Amino acid sequence: PTIVLKVSPEELKALEKAGVEIEKIEKNEDGELYITLTPEALKKAGFE
């Protein structure tokens, strides 16, 4: 199962800087950012 999270541009930068593997980055028509994370990326980021 993949996880989709709504993030701010600042959060996205912080995640990328931390080396979190982001599978997909999407922006909706309201300009909101959503990222898709794999279970492996979540484990690496410390989420179980």
Score class of each variant (00 low, 15 high):
G46D: 08
E48R: 02
G46Y: 04
K24C: 10
K43E: 14
E26P: 01
G19M: 06
G46M: 04
V4P: 02
V7Q: 01
V20K: 00
T38S: 05
E11R: 14
E16Q: 13
E48A: 06
K43G: 08
A18H: 08
P1Y: 15
I22G: 01
F47P: 03
E29I: 10
E11G: 10
E48F: 06
L33V: 14
E10W: 15
L15P: 00
I35C: 03
L42K: 03
P1E: 11
E26G: 05
Y34P: 00
K13E: 10
A41K: 02
F47R: 08
E23Y: 15
L42C: 10
L37D: 00
V7G: 01
I25N: 01
I25D: 01
E29C: 06
E21W: 13
T36W: 15
T38A: 04
I22A: 02
E32S: 15
L33E: 01
K24S: 11
F47I: 14
I25C: 07
K43S: 13
E16F: 15
T36F: 14
E40S: 06
A18V: 05
K43D: 08
G19S: 05
K17W: 12
K6Y: 10
P1I: 11
G31R: 02
A41D: 05
E11S: 09
T38H: 05
I3G: 02
A18F: 11
E10A: 13
Y34D: 01
E48C: 08
A41M: 12
T2L: 14
E23C: 11
K27C: 14
E29L: 10
P1M: 13
E32L: 12
P39Y: 15
I22Q: 00
T2N: 13
L37I: 11
T38F: 03
A14V: 14
G19R: 07
V4C: 09
I22M: 07
N28D: 09
T36K: 04
A41V: 02
Y34K: 04
G31K: 03
L42V: 10
E21S: 07
E11D: 11
G19K: 07
A45H: 05
E26I: 09
E11Q: 15
A14C: 15
L37C: 04
P39G: 09
T36N: 02
T2F: 15
I35Q: 00
L12G: 01
K44I: 08
L15D: 00
I22E: 00
N28P: 02
L15C: 03
N28I: 05
L42Y: 15
L5W: 14
P1D: 09
V7F: 02
A41R: 02
G19N: 07
I3H: 09
V7R: 01
L37V: 14
K6S: 05
I25A: 04
K44L: 10
I25Q: 03
L15S: 00
E11V: 15
E16G: 06
V7N: 00
L15G: 00
G46Q: 06
G46W: 06
E21I: 07
A41I: 02
E10K: 11
F47L: 15
D30K: 11
L15V: 03
L5K: 05
L42R: 04
V7L: 07
I22N: 01
P39F: 15
T36M: 08
L42Q: 06
K24G: 06
E40N: 04
I22W: 08
V7Y: 01
E32Y: 14
G19Q: 06
E16Y: 15
S8C: 09
K13N: 10
